[in-house]
């Protein structure tokens, strides 16, 4: 397992102009990113939808690279999304999965079969042509550039250290300096999307 923040710092070196949906890594990514207008920290609109959202964006913006940092609890809620994504096979979509084996924001309870699901294998069997698994940060660091050089959809399963939260939600520090409306408005301006 490795720290999500360390992984994101390494990824940032190779980001280029990609649109990044940082998912539950947003609290770190907001401090790491140098291109906020291309970041989409959504919070948690409804659990289970990040992969489909990122996929839809990738289809609508085929000339932009779209990078998602998904989490295993989210993905498990809509595992069928992998089939939808693989069928459409957007070449500009890069699907990273942070697997901390638990629901960290609710106190760290395990996800189903927490330690044993091989998500990269699942993604491959659902139709992703290129899948990877990393549980060592050094291996990730040595391979991320070549992974990003390949056409999507690519799936990267990473074992990350849980960052468990137990404070009541209204007592947790606010990590997103922008509202959801601002995030979406900034992105649309960046992409010159009128509506």
């Amino acid at each position: 397992m490795f720290e999500a923040a360390e992984m994101l710092r390494i990824y940032a070196k190779y980001r280029g102009s990609a649109i990044v949906i940082p998912g539950r890594g947003a609290r770190h990514w907001n401090r790491i990113s140098s291109a906020a207008s291309r970041d989409i920290p959504l919070g948690d609109p409804a659990m289970g939808g990040h992969a489909s959202f990122a996929f839809g964006l990738a289809l609508a913006q085929p000339k932009e690279r779209v990078v998602l940092f998904d989490s295993e609890g989210d993905l498990l809620m809509n595992l069928g999304a992998l089939g939808t994504i693989a069928e459409a096979a957007p070449a500009n979509f890069y699907h990273f999965l942070m697997d901390n084996e638990c629901y960290a924001t609710t106190g760290g309870q395990p996800v189903p079969n927490a330690k044993n699901i091989r998500y990269a294998d699942v993604a491959r069997d659902m139709g992703y042509q290129r899948v990877y698994f990393f549980d060592q940060l050094e291996d990730f660091a040595n391979n991320v550039e070549s992974i990003l050089a390949q056409p999507g959809p690519v799936f990267v399963h990473m074992k990350t250290v849980p960052e468990i939260e137990n404070l009541p939600i209204n007592q947790r520090p606010r990590w997103n300096p922008r509202t959801l409306d601002q995030v979406l408005a900034d992105l649309k301006k960046e992409l010159r999307v009128a509506r």
């Binding site: 989409i40 959202f53 964006l57 990738a58 289809l59 609508a60 913006q61 992409l191």
Partner: peptide
């Protein structure tokens, strides 16, 4: 939602 944000 993703499609709409991207202009679809």
């Amino acid at each position: 939602a993703g499609l709409a944000v991207g202009g679809g």
